[in-house]
Design a protein around this nucleic acid. Structure first.
Length: 553
RNA sequence: UGGCCUAUGGUGUAAUGGUAACACAGCAGAUUUUGGUUCUGUUAUUCUUGGUUCGAGUCCAGGUAGGCCAACCA
């Protein structure tokens, strides 16, 4: 296999590091905060971090960045682990920043002893004011000149619980006039008398991100610490801490996060959608979460393929959600079981067909290397899709119309003779005749029809519920929209068809299997299904060039 | 009125000083017992102004545009 796919900029750095001998192997990490569910943007990062380790023969740690007990929960830890595994990746070690609290505390003491950190009694408002602004340098306050001994004592007292939340903080002593705001004496520790999901009540002071992340990387000997662009201004601080502490020099590299059309990608906004019941939960099939996509019927393969195709770079991007849909169609076309389901039934009566039934074999998947077949019961009363019939058909319409002929998939060619209407003029049924010589597989009729319709035998039809999803937001670039993003929610993102008619084979469905409802789209069984009623989620529609054609007209 | 990052078809991503390419989307056609799939063809790209060079998407300088940074969040 000699595919010469070009390297992204991180792969180039790694190859150079390996070539130069800077590293003999690599170690990456995926560092989620357990305060929400993973989404497709995380999938990009997961595929990158784990993919790199697989490609270059290294490892990837799963490290929960759990330094803020107020927002973090075990439920999120569990969901994150499940999602990563489902995506198909295995971590080298499962770790927690909270595992390092004692070590991080010791690092802080080291900084204090070197005169590089101090306890500040100021309020958060005061600290913010003294910090200045991007265009205005900050000012140094009186606490900055405390002695090492005093700082040591105060910091120990902070840990001992002598102070209330917000009463004191530990800050690095760097440069209050630095052009980079993050270097203006950043906070290292704050007091939070809060229960932590792992350390319980052992601690009442917690390290900030900047004093936990880099050091955790270093403790684990992470060689390449890959994060998103907004952490670029943190890098000087990341390196400052490592240098002052004299610990293993992990290096941080930044790539552009994923943005997708018609989608929001921030945990804060996703949490809002869940809490305010705009969706049914984190795994609502309309959510861009991994669990939502999973429930919707997306496959790990298709998500990995998507992440591969979008690439890794440093410029802001807005990926067309259509690319994700392309990837899942591409995979599902290969693996999905074909089934016939009529969403909006129109009865047809085949007047010249006897009162018996026939069984027609039909392929489960025409793309499969080894074909399997199931049998469709055929009777004189069938359902077809209502919009597969038009009383007055336009040119190029090759479905059913008065006097027109179509093939019923895997069965006979039929001709529409009579349109039956109720007193209001609504079409209630069609009387048709079939061509006995046109039997599928042994057609001697010589008749060529352009259209093939899906159908179910009325007598054998199974009632199922079908949920059709559309994009959750109306605007292509939701983030660029003014005002509350929730004003942009698509009110028609879910359409439920309570009584669709399915072929009997669908009764043997299971949650793992993927289906293509012929001419309709790809579907999967939903966990809401009961013994009385099966529920199917539409993953994605089939490409519909006819719909496009009619839209143009 | 500071610092940092980034500018390549509609959307992404390549081209590593030497013919601007690939995918998705679009358009046109062929095949098709899914208006699916598959196949063929095709439209369309280097932000701008200078400079260096035999040669610049690539290097340098200025400009412009977009993004990020002033949470006791990560």
């Amino acid at each position: 296999m000699s595919e010469e796919k070009s390297l992204n900029f991180i792969e180039e750095i790694i190859e150079e590091d390996l070539r130069s001998g800077k590293h003999s192997s690599i170690l990456t990490r995926f560092p989620p905060e357990p305060n929400g569910y993973l989404h497709i943007g995380h999938a990009k990062s997961i595929c990158l971090n784990f993919g790199l380790a697989i490609k270059y023969g290294g490892g990837t740690n799963l490290r929960f960045d759990d330094t803020n007990p107020v927002t973090e929960e075990t439920e999120y830890v569990d969901s994150i682990k499940e999602d990563i595994k489902w995506l198909g990746f295995n971590w080298t070690k499962e770790l927690y920043a909270s595992d390092y609290f004692e070590q991080l505390f010791a690092y802080a003491v080291t900084l204090i002893k070197k005169g590089l950190a101090y306890v500040d009694d100021s309020s958060s408002e005061q600290i913010a004011a003294e910090k200045g602004s991007p265009t205005q340098p900050g000012i140094e306050n009186k606490f900055r000149s405390r002695t090492v001994e005093e700082n040591l004592q105060l910091f120990a007292d902070m840990r001992a619980g002598k102070y209330a939340d917000g009463e004191k903080v530990l800050r690095a002593k760097i440069d209050m006039s630095a052009p980079n705001m993050h270097m203006r004496d950043p906070l290292l520790y704050r007091i939070k008398h809060a229960h932590h999901h792992r350390t319980a009540n052992d601690w009442c002071i917690y390290p900030m991100y900047d004093f936990a992340h880099g050091q955790s990387d270093s403790i684990e000997n992470i060689t390449h610490s890959i994060c998103t662009l907004e952490f670029i201004p943190h890098r000087p601080l990341y390196e400052w801490c490592i240098e002052q502490l004299g610990i293993f020099p992990s290096r941080q590299y930044e790539f552009a996060r994923l943005n997708m059309t018609y989608t929001v990608m921030s945990k804060r906004k996703l949490l809002q959608l869940v809490n305010e019941n705009h969706v049914t939960g984190w795994d609502d099939p309309r959510m861009p979460t991994i669990s939502g996509l999973r429930r919707r019927g997306f496959t790990p393969e298709s998500i990995r393929e998507f992440c591969d195709r979008i690439g890794i770079a440093k410029r802001d991007n807005l990926i067309d959600v259509g690319l994700l849909e392309f990837c899942v169609r591409e995979h599902l076309n290969r693996v999905a079981q074909r089934r016939m389901v009529v969403f909006d039934p129109l009865k047809i009566i085949i007047t010249n067909y006897p009162d018996t039934e026939e069984l027609f074999p039909t392929e489960d998947n025409p793309e499969a290397a080894e074909k399997t077949y199931r049998h469709l019961p055929f009777t004189k009363e069938l359902f077809i899709e209502r919009d597969d019939f038009m009383e007055v058909a336009p040119k190029k319409y090759f479905r059913l119309a008065p006097g027109a002929m179509v093939r019923l998939k895997s069965a006979y060619i039929i001709k529409c003779d009579t349109v039956i209407k109720d007193e209001n003029g609504n079409v209630t049924a069609l009387e048709c005749t079939y061509i006995p010589e046109s039997k599928s597989g042994s057609d001697t009729s010589g008749i060529n029809v352009k259209g093939t319709l899906h159908w179910v035998s009325a007598k054998h039809a199974v009632n199922v519920e079908v949920r059709l999803y559309d994009r959750l937001f109306r605007s292509e670039n939701v983030a660029a929209e003014e005002g509350d993003f929730k004003d942009n929610i698509n009110p028609d993102s879910l359409q439920v068809i309570q009584n669709a008619y399915a072929e009997p084979a669908l009764l043997q469905s299971d949650l793992q299997e993927r289906y293509q409802f012929l001419r309709k789209g790809y579907f999967c069984l939903d966990k809401d299904s009961t013994a009385e009623k099966l529920v199917f989620n539409r993953t994605v529609t089939l490409k519909d060039t006819w719909a496009k054609e009619t839209r143009k007209a």
